[in-house]
Nucleic acid binder design. Structure first.
Lengths: 183, 183
DNA sequence: AACGCAAGCTAACGGCATTAGCTTTCTAGC
DNA sequence: GCTAGAAAGCTAATGCCGTTAGCTTGCGTT
C-alpha cells in the first residue's frame, strides 16, 4: 500500500470542505474525510484533534473565505452602494455554496478559535457603515440589522425554505432597499 | 421490572421535546428518549418509525405550538399593530425556548408530513397582511421579508450569536419599524 | 377462560469517533 | 553516508448509537 500520503491539517480541511460541498454538512464525518484523503480514519488524528476541532477549522476557513470575498467586492465603493454590494455578495456566496453556508459557525465570537476571524468579518460591515457616517452604538444596531436580514434570507434560501424560486431576487432587493432606507 | 409503561407516540414526542429543552437539539437521541420514558431503546420503534420520523414529529409539534401561540396573540388586532405583535411574539418564543427553536424544520413546505402545518403558520402572516390591504404577489414578498427578518434575528439570538445582550430589544424594535415602514 | 394483538424485552449488527500501541518513513545531526 | 528519533501512517479494540430480529408477556375481546 502507498504509505506516506503527505497529509497536512490544511489538506484535511480541504477534504472536509469538499465533502460538505458534495454531500452536505451531515456527511462531514471522519470516515468520509479519511476515505477521500486515502488514509485510515484514525490517521486523521495526527493532523486534527477531533471531529469537533475539524468542524471549527472548517468554520474558520469559511469565515476567512467570506471576509476576503467581501473585502474584494467592496473595494473602491462606499455609502449605500457598498452596503447593497455587501448584502448581494453575502447572498451570492450562499447561493453558490449552500452546504458550505450551513457549516458556518453561528456564534464565532463565543469561540476563542473563531473570535478573531469573526471580528474581521464584522469589521468589513462596520467599516462600510462608518464610511456612511454611522458609528458607535448606532453602528452596532445597524450591523445587527444587516446580519439578521442577510442571514435570515440566506439561511432560508440555502435550506430550500422558500416555496417559489422565480422572484427571490425581487424579494431580496426589497429587503436591501428596506435596510438602506433605514440607515 | 415494571412492564407496560403505557407509552404512546404523543408521549414519546413529549419526552423528545423535554430532552431538547434540557440538553439541546444534539442531545435528541433515541437512547435519551428511551431512558427518559423508562423503556429500552428498541421499544420506541413500537411508537415511532425511526429517529428521523421522531424529528419530523417534533417539528410538527413545534409548528403547531407556534401557530396556536401566534393566532392567540393576534386575535382582535389588525394592521401594523398586528404585524408588530406577530414579530414580537415570534422572538418571544425563541427567547423562551431557544433549543426548541433550533429543532424547527427549516423547510416545512418541502416535507409532506409538515406541509399542512407550515402552510397554517404562513397563513397567520398572510391573513394579517391581507387585513392591512396587501394581497397577491406583493403579499408573498412581504411575508418572505418578515420571515427573513424574524428568523434571522431569532436564530442568531438563539445561538448566542449577538455579542452584547443588553439592548437587543432596541435592535429588534428597529427591525420591526423598518419592516412596518416598508409595507 | 382462552386467544390474539400490542407493547415490551434481549441479543446482535454495522457505522461512527476515539484510544492504544505498533511499524515505517522521512529528516536532522553527526 | 549513517543513524537516531520524530512524525505519519497502520491495525485492533472500545463504547455509543440506530436499527432489526425474534421472543415474552400483559391486556382487552369474545
Amino acid at each position: 500500500m502507498s504509505r506516506r500520503v503527505g497529509l497536512s491539517t490544511t489538506a484535511v480541511v480541504d477534504a472536509a470542505v469538499e465533502v460538505i460541498d458534495e454531500n452536505g454538512l451531515d456527511a462531514l464525518t471522519l470516515a468520509a474525510v479519511a476515505s477521500r484523503t486515502g488514509v485510515a480514519a484514525p490517521s486523521l488524528y495526527k493532523h486534527v484533534g477531533s471531529l469537533g476541532e475539524l468542524r471549527t477549522l472548517v468554520g474558520l476557513r469559511l469565515l476567512e473565505e467570506m471576509t476576503e470575498r467581501f473585502t474584494t467586492a467592496v473595494v473602491g465603493r462606499s455609502g449605500v452602494e457598498a452596503l447593497a454590494i455587501l448584502m448581494r455578495e453575502y447572498r451570492a456566496f450562499v447561493v453558490e455554496h449552500p452546504a458550505r453556508y450551513a457549516a458556518m459557525p453561528a456564534d464565532p465570537l463565543n469561540d476563542p478559535a473563531l473570535a478573531a476571524a469573526g471580528t474581521k468579518l464584522l469589521n468589513v460591515f462596520l467599516a462600510v457603515l462608518r464610511g456612511h457616517g454611522i458609528e458607535g452604538p448606532e453602528a452596532i444596531h445597524a450591523t445587527r440589522c444587516a446580519r439578521a436580514i442577510t442571514h435570515g434570507f440566506a439561511s432560508i434560501e440555502a435550506s430550500g425554505g422558500f416555496g417559489l424560486p422565480e422572484d427571490l431576487d425581487e424579494t431580496y432587493e426589497q429587503l436591501i432597499q428596506m435596510y438602506i432606507a433605514s440607515v
